[in-house]
């Protein structure tokens, strides 16, 4: 069997294994406990039955996650550029950034609702807050980690500070930037769901997956809850996948991490 064939078959086998164990566990619980774990086909039925609601909620969550993520990417890049200018600026900004990162979002959520109002604005802010820190830290690290030989080379060429930043430091920081972006991409849907959970609302069908989760859980719809978890998971994959794709586009031609055996 060829290696690539094996690579496709193994994940399929492991998925079948997981489903098998799932059914076995569900069966072993006995009728009085089966409400704890709906069977895979029940989850699938719930997925089909709740598809319109789940789809609408997923779109709303995706919108919140996307906006929060994009704002985090843009602002973190600007801040990272400022931070990269001098160690003194970094020293004076980092404590605030750390404090922001250390504050659990759940604690901030009720305050944010007071300020921004419930719904999309709060969801976007919460997503932004969760995504911002890893982006700033990684991008700044990238901007200040430029190969000193290359910096010397630019200085020897009489490059201006502007040229040094735009033509050297920024492209050299791209791998770090994308690392931050990958972390943020996995956090963005989580942030949007947590935001929706605590600060969402139902206006005009704007409820997202977090809101739907509360509704399902308050009505003990375990299968629907699992279906919502599945949809959230897929949303996470889409976000991560998109960023991994972008990262590939930007880096695969030149970066060592994409080196293949023949290049």
């Amino acid at each position: 069997m060829s290696k690539s064939k094996l690579d496709t078959i193994l994940p399929v086998l492991s998925s079948l294994g997981v489903i098998g164990v799932w059914y076995a566990a569900q069966h072993a619980m006995g009728p009085d406990r089966q409400f704890l774990l709906p069977a895979p086909h029940q989850v699938f039925q719930a997925l089909v039955a709740k598809a319109p609601e789940l789809g609408q909620a997923a779109r709303n969550t995706a919108l919140g996650a996307f906006l929060g993520f994009v704002i985090a990417v843009v602002l973190s890049f600007v801040l990272a550029l400022i931070l990269s200018l001098s160690p003194r600026i970094r020293r004076s900004f980092y404590p605030h950034l750390m404090a922001l990162q250390m504050t659990p979002i759940v604690v901030l959520a009720p305050i944010l609702i007071l300020w921004a109002g419930p719904g999309l604005p709060s969801v976007v802010i919460i997503t932004f807050l969760i995504c911002f820190f890893p982006m700033v830290v990684n991008t700044t690290q990238g901007l200040i980690s430029t190969d000193t030989n290359l910096v010397d080379f630019f200085r020897m060429c009489n490059a201006t500070k502007r040229q040094e930043i735009l033509m050297l430091r920024v492209p050299a920081a791209l791998p770090y930037f994308f690392t931050g972006m990958r972390i943020a991409a996995t956090l963005a849907p989580i942030g949007a769901i947590v935001g929706d959970f605590t600060a969402g609302n139902s206006a005009g069908g704007q409820g997202g997956l977090g809101y739907l989760t509360i509704v399902f859980s308050s009505q003990f719809q375990m299968s629907a809850l699992f279906a919502a978890a599945l949809v959230s998971c897929v949303l996470g994959f889409i976000f991560s996948g998109a960023v991994i794709g972008l990262s590939w586009l930007a880096l695969h031609k030149w970066h060592e991490s994409y080196r293949t055996s023949e290049s």
Binding site: N149, L150, F153
Partner: peptide, 13 residues
């Protein structure tokens, strides 16, 4: 013009 010990090429170009 200076030629350094390292090739100092920009890997992204």
């Amino acid at each position: 013009f200076f030629v350094f010990q390292e090739p100092t090429l920009m890997p992204w170009l």
